[in-house]
Design a protein around this nucleic acid. Structure first.
Lengths: 220, 220
DNA sequence: TGTACATCAGTGAACGCGCGTTCACTGATGTAC
DNA sequence: TGTACATCAGTGAACGCGCGTTCACTGATGTAC
């Protein structure tokens, strides 16, 4: 009996192509998105042209253009996860600096790749889409690792185990970070505070520090 | 001398058309956007088909499809302004309820017309675009009336005149409202708090109440 | 008041273009004997 | 080791489609005399 199973049926990459062409397609699409600023500039023929292959060659790797965009988005989420982790580890010593570094990395990611960031969160997914029909766990979890990094940073800062409170805090912080990043890109004419100032305001107000959990929140 | 000036050169509407057709075009485009969820479903031929006119008839009112989208966006901003004002006036008595009503109206607008809302703030405008070339004051100020309504509601709540502090507070609140509204639409699988709960959290933490301006903000 | 004329909002046919997709194919790679 | 064959990633030509845009036009409306 030879090594015959589902695993060994996979084709090996020929002459460096195969798996590599797939990556080149995704990279070309990501480049076109960031250069043109328009996700509809990602066309099957356009991508093929940029990669230097014939248009039908795409079909060996993606069944349609939506699949390419999905791969671009998935790659961007992986990069975001990595960026937040790296920033957090670089400032692991001090909980306050740690949280701030993670938030700062989030804003930097959005600022440096505005269009990829926009496509990550700008397309409205249907509510039941991921749950019904095909269970696509990878897609369902997109961004959850980054969010967990944020929850961890928040709970370290508040000096608690990750719990409901740090989840609520991290949600509020995420919402504010996303709002700042996307509005700043969409409405550059607004007199925005710079990101350092904004981060100070948001973290100070949204995240409970360690110690007694009292908070002055208005006179009522 | 007859009444000859720039004003009187304007054509009068023929048989109810003219100005009315322009409105029908914008309404059809807005409907297509909200129905399909895709701003690129707004094509010149598609809009003409929906209105029931020949495609070239559009050119009498818009020079290109981008002009139609711009009109849809401008109309949406006017509606948002109106909605926030109306909600504020309906709850004018109590400053806390007033602010909450304005924020609630903002979230409701985004929830009820998710795609129009997305297009309002989802397209990245170039930084110098509005300032350079053609000065388009109307476009430059899109959304500023709604923001001013928010600043006013915040300063009433904090019991101050609109100043730098209420501007900062309103900015933080806007950022959070936008982030919540757009992320909820983009990532419906996330376990979002409902909007009442989210509003309570955000207003409580981001807006200073009246009275002594002390705030507990962590131990450092 | 009547008539000839100017205006102009909207039409219908036609165009060239880039798109996604299909199809039979090519030719290098890897394998069975 | 050598040879015939199977595999399959990628090709090039061709298609039908919806698009934006042009052009000469139509026909109702309003106006000058």
């Amino acid at each position: 009996v030879k090594f015959v199973n589902a695993e060994s049926r996979r084709r090996q990459n020929r002459r460096g192509q195969g798996g590599r062409l797939r990556d080149e397609i995704v990279a070309a699409a990501a480049g076109m998105l960031e250069e043109t600023g328009d996700e509809d500039a990602i066309t099957l023929r356009g991508v093929a042209r940029k990669v230097g292959i014939a248009a039908p060659s795409i079909y060996g790797h993606f069944s349609d253009v939506e699949g390419i965009v999905a791969a671009v988005v998935a790659g961007a989420f992986t990069e975001l996860d990595t960026a937040l982790d790296a920033a957090g580890q670089a400032a692991a010593a001090d909980p306050e600096a740690h949280l701030r570094a993670v938030c700062d990395a989030y804003l930097r990611f959005a600022r440096e790749q505005p269009h990829r960031y926009r496509v990550m969160f700008g397309r409205h997914r249907a509510a039941g889409e991921s749950a019904l029909s095909q269970p696509r766990p990878a897609e369902e979890l997109l961004g959850s690792r980054a969010f967990n990094t944020l929850v961890g940073a928040v709970s370290r800062r508040t000096g608690t185990e990750p719990d409901e409170g740090s989840f609520t805090d991290a949600t509020a912080l995420w919402v504010a970070l996303h709002g700042y990043a996307s509005l700043q890109a969409a409405v550059p004419a607004f007199p925005w505070p710079d990101s350092a100032e904004m981060l100070t305001t948001l973290i100070e107000r949204l995240i409970r520090g360690p110690g007694p959990a009292t908070r002055t929140s208005g006179s009522r």
